[in-house]
Lab assay of single mutants.
Amino acid sequence: EDPKKEILLAMLMVDKEKKGYVMASDLRSKLTSLGEKLTHKEVDDLFREADIEPNGKVKYDEFIHKITL
């Protein structure tokens, strides 16, 4: 499956209130437990690539855009 789609799906599952962003810690939890599970190192690399703080907010569109360039 398309990794971009899988990450967006994980974000939507976490963002039940439809705020347009999720906490990095919640996204990490989903990405390491769903679908093609990522390792913590892979998530760290994704966050670093997208300039996301480990305890920060992750906005869908910015995150998807940064990791798919």
Rank of each mutant, 00 (worst) to 15 (best):
E1S: 10
D2F: 14
P3Q: 10
P3N: 12
P3C: 12
K4D: 07
K4C: 08
K5M: 11
K5S: 07
K5R: 12
K5N: 04
K5W: 12
E6M: 05
E6T: 08
E6A: 13
E6F: 02
E6S: 11
I7H: 14
L9N: 14
L9K: 13
A10N: 14
A10T: 06
A10E: 14
M11S: 13
M11P: 08
L12F: 05
M13K: 15
M13L: 09
M13E: 15
V14S: 15
V14D: 13
D15Q: 09
D15T: 06
K16F: 00
K16I: 02
K16C: 09
K16P: 09
K18S: 10
K19E: 13
K19D: 15
G20F: 00
Y21V: 12
Y21C: 06
M23T: 13
A24S: 06
D26G: 01
D26R: 01
D26M: 01
L27P: 01
R28E: 02
R28D: 01
S29W: 05
T32E: 11
T32I: 08
S33G: 10
S33A: 09
S33H: 09
G35T: 09
G35W: 05
G35Q: 11
E36L: 13
K37A: 12
T39P: 11
T39G: 12
H40P: 13
H40M: 08
K41F: 02
E42G: 02
E42N: 02
V43H: 00
V43N: 01
V43Y: 00
D44H: 00
D45Q: 11
L46M: 09
L46D: 02
L46G: 02
L46T: 04
L46H: 00
F47H: 00
F47E: 03
R48S: 08
E49P: 01
D51K: 11
I52D: 03
I52A: 04
E53V: 04
E53T: 09
E53S: 11
P54G: 09
N55T: 08
K57A: 11
K57I: 15
K57P: 09
V58M: 00
V58G: 01
K59S: 10
Y60C: 07
E62T: 07
E62Q: 05
E62G: 00
E62W: 00
F63Q: 02
F63A: 10
I64H: 00
H65A: 08
K66S: 10
I67E: 12
T68G: 14
L69C: 15
L69R: 15
